[in-house]
């Protein structure tokens, strides 16, 4: 199997003042992320999801253990920029990650940092803005856009750097339902184009779209499997303080009523399709 990210015995501690204990945010986690895959990471607040994400592109350096991103060790200063270009990152707050007062200049920020030729930057910026359906807003000021639109600009800014993998750290947490579904469909499209996606979220409905779901709890990986496997395990979900996706519960209720709903149905579309074809 071809893995783009390989995490080996990662432990991360936030250092604090001498008299206090350090905070162990990640405790001996090992994971492999397959190239081109779509992985969701869920877990309650403070379970270490953001810390894990920041370790994946060298914003934080492991206290113990190693992370390889496309073969580069994140601890290696000589390759830190390769690591960050390979694994792009979209953050939660759409307001606080845009640098420039003009949309297209903001999208150009990453490629400019990479020292790419002006003509090529122009092409990438235009393409990236088209990819997120924001072409007509190229000259606008970000503060005039909605949260969802700002988040799309942030995604375009990462896409323009041509990363192989994008880590989304709760990208929809501050958006309204419309913005949320726009962002989710863009994430799906990027995955279809071959980009490895790691989606950190606390919305079960979003995690359902992934091929693999990892549940984190207090710095540990509590469970790791397909959405079906993970959601079938009620005890683990309870232990991690998570709710079951709505359609999963609906399925269970229907089964109690004697309707034979297959257990792999977890998204709304699948459920609608099943009900429409049910005889």
């Amino acid at each position: 199997m071809d893995n783009i990210i390989s995490i080996q015995n990662l432990t991360f501690e936030y250092l604090r003042d001498e008299d206090q204990m350090n905070i162990k945010a990640i405790d001996n986690v090992s994971l492999e992320i397959e190239r081109g895959s779509f992985t969701a990471v869920i877990g309650k607040n403070g379970s270490g999801k953001s810390t894990l994400a920041k370790n994946l592109n060298g914003l934080l350096i492991p206290t113990e253990g190693v992370i390889y991103v496309d073969g580069f060790d994140t601890r290696d200063d000589n390759h830190i920029w390769d690591v960050r270009q390979t694994a792009g990152m979209v953050f939660q707050n759409p307001d606080n990650q845009l640098v420039s007062a003009i949309v297209e200049d903001d999208v150009a920020f990453g490629p400019e940092n990479l020292g790419i030729e002006p003509d090529e930057i122009r092409r990438r910026v235009d393409k990236a803005l088209e990819d997120v359906n924001m072409g007509q807003f190229r000259k606008k000021a970000p503060h005039l856009l909605s949260g969802g639109q700002k988040q799309r600009i942030a995604i375009a800014g990462v896409v323009a750097m041509k990363p192989k993998c994008i880590i989304f750290d709760e990208p929809t947490a501050m958006l309204d339902p419309k913005g949320r579904s726009e962002i989710m469909s863009i994430i799906d499209e990027l995955h279809e184009e071959g980009i490895t996606v790691i989606l950190i979220t606390h919305f079960m409905e979003e995690a359902v779209r992934a091929q693999r779901v990892i549940i984190m709890n207090e710095g540990h990986v509590l469970m790791d499997g397909t959405p079906q496997e993970v959601y079938a395990n009620e005890e683990v979900l309870k232990a991690a303080n998570l709710e079951m996706p709505l359609m999963f519960e609906v399925g269970a209720k229907l089964r109690q009523q004697g309707i034979d709903v297959p257990s792999h149905i977890i998204t709304e579309e699948e459920m609608v399709e099943f009900i429409c074809q049910y005889k």
Binding site: W81, R84, F91, E104, G110, E112, N113, G115
Partner: peptide, 14 residues
Amino acid sequence: EARCYRGGDNRTRM
């Protein structure tokens, strides 16, 4: 930083 910002050296402009 995540977008590879490292000051003005070797930076190009669109």
